[in-house]
Amino acid sequence: MHADFVIARNPEPGSTLPYLLWVPLGRDGLVLKARETWPRTSKVYCHRTEGWPPDATVLERVPVRSCSRRGPAIDLVLDRGRENRSQIVLTRARGREMIFWQSPTTTKQARPKVALPTRRATGQVLEIVVDIREKYPYRFSHQQATTVRRRLPAGDYAVEVDGEVVAAVERKSLGDLAASLTTGRLTYALAELAALPRAAVVVEERYSRIFRLEHVSGGVVAEALAEAQARFPAVPVMFAETRPLAEEWTYRFLGAARAELAAHALTAAGADLLLPQGGAAPEPAPPSPAEVRAWARARGIAVADRGRIPAAVVRAYLGR
């Protein structure tokens, strides 16, 4: 049962959770009571239980392709063609543990209150550190972000937690990418990026343009890129069609990475899978535009009645 995902009938009489799940995570695995055998139409409520009862009737046993913990979520991939991907989310509500089992078909519906990365950049003003060696850096003027210039140990753009870089993005033009691949410089850059909790490379061009380079063989560059990705799989390379799209992707990646790592930090101290009772206090909610405008006008700072508030005003409000 160690390498399989197992579904069985719950032998406990009168239980409102009639099924048992064996999740092969960690040395002892995770045993859950569940309301359904798969999250098909909505997320399934589960409850942790101790040990696997010897009289449980096994209904299904499926080999597991991968099972890994990422922050408050367990990603489970089964070795079968259909209904093979799901996620078990552990959170807390009203002082007790809540567990929900969801699949790709149910994630668009209502989720439990849990800090998981989404397509939005954490829902707050993001402070991005820009390496001082960037000659023409992204300004993030169209995003809810502020920037500071500082020398970074790796990458061109980064976010920090408690003064430590936790995620970084290396920016490349297509010509720079080709040159760094053929000379081997990118290997050293990827090694530095791989040492961070989260990192990526963004290229300001389409992948197809590799095969239209004038001074180097596209096949050589594509082969070198594939070898670099195989060697450093934890550092993805993203091709964006234009510089503005590359800037937008960088902003989204850094925000999502910071949110995921913050969620992971809240649960990392727990023994096995038990979420900690305490932990760091959540970050305050971002200020509303009305709050910032009222604060600015009270201090004689001119701001428009509508539209985006200048980043300098937001930065001043946050540092009050």
Results as ranks from 00 to 15, higher is better:
residue 110 A to H: 13
residue 106 T to E: 05
residue 90 L to A: 01
residue 129 V to W: 06
residue 92 R to L: 07
residue 101 W to F: 05
residue 83 E to T: 06
residue 64 V to Q: 04
residue 110 A to P: 11
residue 100 F to V: 02
residue 90 L to T: 01
residue 80 R to T: 05
residue 101 W to A: 00
residue 71 G to Y: 07
residue 80 R to W: 03
residue 80 R to H: 04
residue 89 V to G: 02
residue 82 R to L: 13
residue 97 E to H: 07
residue 81 G to Q: 12
residue 76 L to Y: 07
residue 98 M to K: 14
residue 116 L to P: 06
residue 132 I to G: 15
residue 111 R to Y: 05
residue 109 Q to L: 10
residue 103 S to L: 05
residue 132 I to S: 15
residue 73 A to L: 06
residue 105 T to I: 08
residue 65 R to H: 14
residue 68 S to I: 13
residue 87 Q to C: 02
residue 89 V to A: 03
residue 117 P to D: 11
residue 78 L to R: 03
residue 107 T to L: 10
residue 67 C to D: 05
residue 130 V to S: 09
residue 109 Q to K: 12
residue 129 V to A: 10
residue 131 D to I: 03
residue 100 F to E: 01
residue 72 P to W: 04
residue 129 V to N: 08
residue 79 D to F: 12
residue 117 P to T: 09
residue 120 R to S: 14
residue 73 A to W: 00
residue 115 A to M: 15
residue 125 V to W: 12
residue 76 L to Q: 01
residue 125 V to H: 15
residue 83 E to Q: 12
residue 63 P to H: 10
residue 133 R to E: 14
residue 118 T to L: 14
residue 100 F to D: 00
residue 77 V to C: 03
residue 67 C to W: 03
residue 64 V to S: 06
residue 78 L to Q: 06
residue 82 R to D: 07
residue 128 I to S: 03
residue 98 M to H: 11
residue 110 A to K: 14
residue 107 T to P: 04
residue 106 T to H: 01
residue 120 R to V: 15
residue 126 L to W: 03
residue 127 E to V: 15
residue 129 V to D: 08
residue 92 R to E: 11
residue 72 P to E: 02
residue 130 V to P: 04
residue 87 Q to H: 01
residue 106 T to S: 08
residue 123 G to M: 08
residue 90 L to S: 02
residue 127 E to K: 12
residue 92 R to N: 07
residue 98 M to Q: 14
residue 98 M to T: 14
residue 63 P to V: 13
residue 69 R to G: 02
residue 81 G to P: 05
residue 111 R to M: 12
residue 104 P to G: 01
residue 120 R to E: 14
residue 82 R to C: 07
residue 92 R to V: 07
residue 92 R to T: 06
residue 120 R to Q: 08
residue 105 T to G: 11
residue 109 Q to M: 10
residue 133 R to L: 10
residue 68 S to Q: 15
residue 112 P to V: 07
residue 115 A to Y: 14
residue 105 T to K: 08
residue 87 Q to P: 00
residue 119 R to H: 13
residue 85 R to T: 06
residue 114 V to A: 05
residue 63 P to R: 11
residue 116 L to F: 01
residue 129 V to I: 12
residue 122 T to A: 14
residue 72 P to A: 09
residue 64 V to I: 11
residue 83 E to Y: 11
residue 117 P to M: 10
residue 122 T to H: 08
residue 127 E to W: 09
residue 112 P to A: 06
residue 122 T to W: 06
residue 130 V to T: 10
residue 109 Q to D: 12
residue 88 I to A: 01
residue 70 R to Q: 05
residue 118 T to G: 15
residue 106 T to Q: 04
residue 98 M to P: 06
residue 107 T to W: 03
residue 94 R to M: 10
residue 99 I to F: 00
residue 75 D to W: 00
residue 121 A to T: 07
residue 87 Q to W: 03
residue 74 I to N: 01
residue 78 L to K: 09
residue 127 E to S: 14
